[in-house]
């Protein structure tokens, strides 16, 4: 019974959490479209106290203050980019959960692809070398041929006494 119920309860709790996040009803903007923009923007901004949560998820007082600032500024007509700039000026690019694509971060963005490409290169090289090796085994020189012949002869004579 618990085996069936536990995942259900867990899923329900997750859904509940996703529905409410940390944004309290009294913080919300009256205009649903603006509130939706505020929620979306809040998900992209890092809570500096809990650091791996967005301000939309965090219960920290600073996250609440930042949510309020986001809403005030959206309500007064600021764009998402302007609000991000406002916060980056104060807290640095660390406040953005998704780092911007800039010269300083291109390695970060390209990193996984570079590693995948290097891995693919290694595998291809290995496969090609193995295929090449399988096609043309080293030729035996006359000395090896002679030893081999003796061995085969000796073995067959032992087997058939």
């Amino acid at each position: 019974m618990t085996r069936v119920l536990a995942p259900l309860v867990f899923a329900f709790a997750c859904a509940l959490r996703a529905a409410f996040a940390a944004t309290a009803p009294d913080e919300m903007l009256a205009d649903p479209a603006l509130e939706a923009r505020a929620r979306a923007l809040g998900k992209e901004l890092r809570c500096l106290v809990c650091q791996n949560q967005s301000i939309d998820d965090s219960d920290a007082p600073l996250a609440r203050d930042l949510r309020r600032i986001v809403r005030e500024r959206l309500a007064s007509g600021a764009s998402e980019a302007e609000i991000k700039r406002f916060l980056v000026e104060r807290y640095g690019e660390f406040v953005l959960l998704e780092p911007p694509f800039a010269p300083a971060t291109w390695l970060l963005w390209a990193g996984p692809f570079l590693v995948a490409a290097a891995g693919a290169g290694l595998v291809l090289g290995f496969l090609r070398r193995r295929a090449a090796g399988a096609e043309e085994p080293a030729e035996l020189d006359p000395e090896e041929r002679r030893v081999l012949a003796t061995l085969i002869a000796g073995e067959s004579s032992e087997r058939a006494p």
Partner: peptide
């Protein structure tokens, strides 16, 4: 309200 602190980039 902690507004001036936010202008200073304070997080604790």
């Amino acid at each position: 309200e902690g507004r001036a602190a936010i202008d200073w980039g304070v997080y604790g």
